[in-house]
Amino acid sequence: MIDELRTERLLLRPLTLDHVDDYFRVYGDPRTWEHLPSGRHTSRGESARAIERSMLSRRVYGFGHCAVVLREPVPGLAAGSFLGSAGAAMLDVDAWNLGYRFAPEAWGHGFATEAAGVALAAARSARPETPVTARVLASNTASVRLLERLGLQPIWRGASSDAPSGPDDTTHLERLIFADRSISDETLDAVIALG
């Protein structure tokens, strides 16, 4: 089980319910959901459930999402600041889903690339036989570039459906799926179906 990860500037610690207020501050901020407004957390309970899923992933698969904390101060941010989260969650198929989200005040420092890179390495270390995937909206060019910098390859582009089936359905939006290796058609179909 992976406990704490370190980079030159960041600490990544397993998320716990002690992080719920900070997590909700980031995940409830509309600015962090510019490309997918319907994904924004609207309650602390929603953030708590996301953290609980990450805690379960860590217990069962050895890794989950982490709180990303600044080790040393940078202009405008104090040491110990909760910047956001980064990590990987096991999907219902045998594949990781790499993800990250950062507070707006942390943008523009390269923290997402740094944290996602160490999270990618941790997922590979926890289960080397399991592919790492990442889903991103095609309109989110910053995340597309980040995944390319990490060396992930685009393996699919499109929409899971022609039209939304309800107000929270986003499967009609164009997405890209990246992976660190070839994956089976069955796994790809399951990742596409997630929207």
Rank of each mutant, 00 (worst) to 15 (best):
A159K: 14
S125T: 14
N97P: 00
A79C: 08
V136D: 01
G80I: 08
D185S: 14
S54E: 01
S143G: 07
Y27E: 13
P104C: 09
P14R: 15
F178W: 06
A119D: 01
G76K: 05
L77E: 03
Q153L: 12
F24T: 10
C66K: 00
A89R: 08
Y27L: 10
R13I: 14
E114G: 05
Y100M: 02
V136K: 00
I51A: 09
A86L: 04
V132I: 03
G117W: 02
A106K: 00
S182M: 06
H65T: 10
R149T: 13
G62T: 03
D185C: 04
V118T: 12
L5M: 11
P73A: 11
L98V: 02
D92I: 00
G195D: 02
D29Y: 03
L56W: 14
P75D: 11
E46H: 11
Y23P: 00
L173C: 02
Q153R: 15
V191P: 01
R101Y: 00
F63P: 00
T187N: 03
R40N: 03
V26T: 10
Q153D: 04
E148Q: 15
R135C: 10
A95V: 07
S125Q: 15
L5N: 05
S43K: 04
V136R: 01
M90A: 13
S54I: 08
S161Y: 02
V132K: 01
T141V: 14
N97M: 11
A134V: 02
S85G: 12
D185L: 09
P167S: 08
L15T: 07
V191S: 09
A163R: 15
A48G: 11
R25Q: 13
A190Q: 01
E148C: 08
A190F: 05
L15V: 10
L15H: 07
L147S: 00
R44H: 12
E129L: 13
D92T: 12
E174Q: 14
A193Q: 10
A190I: 07
L176G: 02
A134Y: 04
M55A: 15
S182T: 12
T133K: 02
G76I: 11
L11G: 01
G87N: 05
S54A: 09
M1P: 13
H109Q: 04
A123I: 05
E114P: 05
S160K: 06
A123Q: 00
H65L: 09
S165H: 14
T141Q: 11
F24V: 04
E72S: 12
F63D: 00
V26S: 04
L17G: 06
N97V: 00
L188G: 03
A89Y: 04
R101C: 09
M1K: 11
S160W: 02
A115P: 10
L120I: 06
D18T: 08
F82G: 07
A86R: 01
A50V: 07
F24P: 02
V74M: 06
V118S: 05
L137P: 00
P128Q: 12
P164L: 13
R59Q: 11
G151S: 06
R149D: 10
G80W: 10
E46G: 14
S139R: 14
E129F: 05
H35G: 06
L91R: 14
A138I: 03
R175H: 15
L147W: 03
A78T: 06
D189R: 15
D21N: 04
